[in-house]
């Protein structure tokens, strides 16, 4: 199946000289939820702003459903909804008015039934006549989602949708995202929260310093980049690592009572069983074993640290 978004060699250099995107290549599949992870200034917002038409690319191409975002901007933008990071809303407009405005702006004819359903789905209908300024932060976030969905887009961009929201609302947001995904909407979200990416995304992209370091499924990332740490507690202390174990990535604790083996996961396999056999053969007596597996967060932190 053709990707719904295809990004090739995308670069963005701002007037200040800041290189926000460096040769980004990415294909996003129809109906998937992809999370872009990265620290502040990584280029996540610039990437989605470029696809949406807010930022002009310096070079490279972006196609949405086969259409170029510059020469066919009407077709591409009709397919896209954007929920920005900031709560940017006209303070004196009503919820109903601002959502209806968004629908019209995207060229869709007036459809009060659809807007009513949308507001009900987002638990906003009882606030439809309220001015936006009277709403809580969480409600404003929902209004932004309603605006982005007002023209029934195929693709929804959410720029840090849960930044600064409480746990309950965050879970509500995740449910909204899952519901939209089940209706076939392709979702691209940026986030700082690894937990969020783990919870809702099919694939995770890691960005840092304007580069897209990797884009893979969560399980693949764990498989390819995950590490296991085996901590072997010894009954009696030892002064040095037995020579038969030197070929493995093993460290000895200062008190000589622990051997720490850092294992990389390759094709789902590790050398843990071989290490254990070698320890037994070397005559060391094992008191206890502990295995720790790296989380997506550990992998993310390692990736970003190495790049920096």
């Amino acid at each position: 199946m053709n990707p719904i978004i295809s990004i090739k060699d995308l670069n963005k250099i701002y007037a200040t000289g800041f290189n926000a995107l460096k040769n980004v290549n990415l294909e996003i599949n129809r109906g998937e939820i992809i999370a872009l992870l990265g620290p502040n200034g990584a280029g996540k917002t610039t990437l989605i702003s470029t696809i949406c038409g807010i930022v002009s690319p310096t070079s490279g191409t972006v196609h949405v459903d086969g259409f170029d975002i510059i020469s066919d901007f009407r077709k591409t933008r009709e397919m896209i909804g954007l929920v920005p990071q900031e709560l940017t809303l006209g303070a004196f407009e009503t919820v109903w008015g601002t959502v209806r405005f968004s629908r019209g702006l995207f060229g869709s004819k007036r459809d009060d039934d659809y807007i009513e359903k949308l507001l009900k789905d987002l638990s906003l209908f009882d606030k439809k006549d309220s001015e936006v300024r009277a709403l809580s932060g969480g409600m404003k976030r929902r209004v932004l989602i309603a605006k982005a969905l007002s023209h029934q887009p195929k693709i929804l961009f959410l720029d840090e949708p849960t930044a600064g929201v409480d746990v309950e609302l965050r879970k509500d947001m995740w449910k909204i995202i899952h519901d939209l995904s089940s209706k076939g909407v392709t979702i691209i979200l940026t986030t700082h929260y690894i937990e969020e990416a783990e919870e809702i995304a099919n694939r995770v992209g890691v960005m840092n310093n304007g580069e897209l370091l990797l884009v893979e499924g969560k399980d693949q990332i764990m498989e390819n980049l995950g590490k296991k740490q085996l901590v072997i507690e010894l009954k009696e202390s030892t002064k040095k690592i037995p020579s038969s174990l030197e070929k493995y990535n093993i460290e000895l604790s200062q008190n000589g009572l622990q051997l720490i083996y850092n294992s990389e996961i390759k094709d789902g396999e590790t050398d843990i069983s071989n290490v254990l056999i070698e320890i037994t053969n070397s005559g060391l007596l094992v008191k206890d074993l502990k295995i720790e597996k790296s989380s997506l967060e550990d992998i993310f932190v390692d990736l970003v640290r190495v790049e920096s």
Partner: peptide, 13 residues
Amino acid sequence: FTGTIYEILSAPV
């Protein structure tokens, strides 16, 4: 000033 210009810039207009 308010930032709502993003919507106009990202609309098919």
